[in-house]
Amino acid sequence: MIEIINLTQVYRSGKGVFDLNFNINDGEVFGYLGPNGAGKTTTIRNILGFTNAKEGKVLINGKDARTDTEEINKTIGYLPGEIALYKNLRGREFLDLLASLRNLTDFTYRKTLEEKFKLDTEVFIKKMSKGMKQKLAIIACFMHDPDILILDEPTSGLDPLMQNVFLDLIKEEKKRKKTILLSSHIFEEVERVCDRVGIIKDGYLIALEDIHTLKQKTADIFEVYLEAKDDNILKSGLDISYASDNIYRIAVKNNYKEFFKLMQEFKVTKIVSFNESLEDLFMKHYGDD
C-alpha cells in the first residue's frame, strides 16, 4: 500500500504539491490525472524518495519512501516520464545493467516483454526512435516482476497499436494483483485500466473518485458540420457551443436519443467525435480556480 500523508513540496518557482493526502491500496490501479505541470511528477519523485518533502511523507508498505529506499526498491518498478537512457549502450546492455543491479537472474519475463513489444534490444540506444526507447524503458520497469509499478506518462511516444499492447499489459498486471500508479494527462487511457482516479491541479488534489463516478461526469463531444451556418441548432436545449463558421460542438452524456433526433432536423455534412478533454472536465466539474 502507498500512503501519501500531508505531502507538501514547494519549488523556488512557487510550484509544487500542497498537502496531498491519498492512499493507493494493494492490488489497485490508481490513475493520477492532471494537466502538464500540475504536480504529478513531483508526487512521484516523493514516492520514489528522490526529493525531500517540505512537509509530510510517503509510506510504502509502512516504510518511509525517502529513507528506506534500498528495501522498498526491491518491490518497485519505475517508468520515468522523461526517457533518458545511457545512449552509448545497446538495449540489451542497458537491461543487463539493471538486471545485475537488481541481482535478477531469471530473464523469462524480460524475454516475454521483448517479444510482446517487438523490440530488438541489440540496437544501440542512440539509434533508437522515441517509441523504441519508451518500449525499452517499459521492459526495464516490468522485467523484474515488481509488486508496485509507478508509471509516469507511460504511453507517450508509443504508437496507437503499442499503446493498446501496453494497456493490455496493465490489465494483465492488474489481474495479478499488482499495485499500480499510472500518471497521465489522457483521460481515455486512465478510463480503460484504472479502478480509482486522483485528479491534481496546480499542486492540489481536487478530486479522488471511483472511475465509474468519473465516467458519469464526462461527456462525449461531437463536432457537427452543417451545410451552412444555422444558429437555430443552439436553441435545441442540448449542450451546444458554436465552434466556428458552420461547425458546432455538442456535448452528449447519456442523452444520445435527443442528439440523434436533433441531427435529423439539420443538414449535417460531417460528424467528428472525441472524448471530453481533461481540461474541459476540470473546467466543468472541478472549477477553474
Partner: peptide
Amino acid sequence: DTSMSYLLTTPNSR
C-alpha cells in the same frame, strides 16, 4: 539528464 533515476530505483541505497 535524469538517467540517475534508473540507478536509484534499484535496490541500492544512494
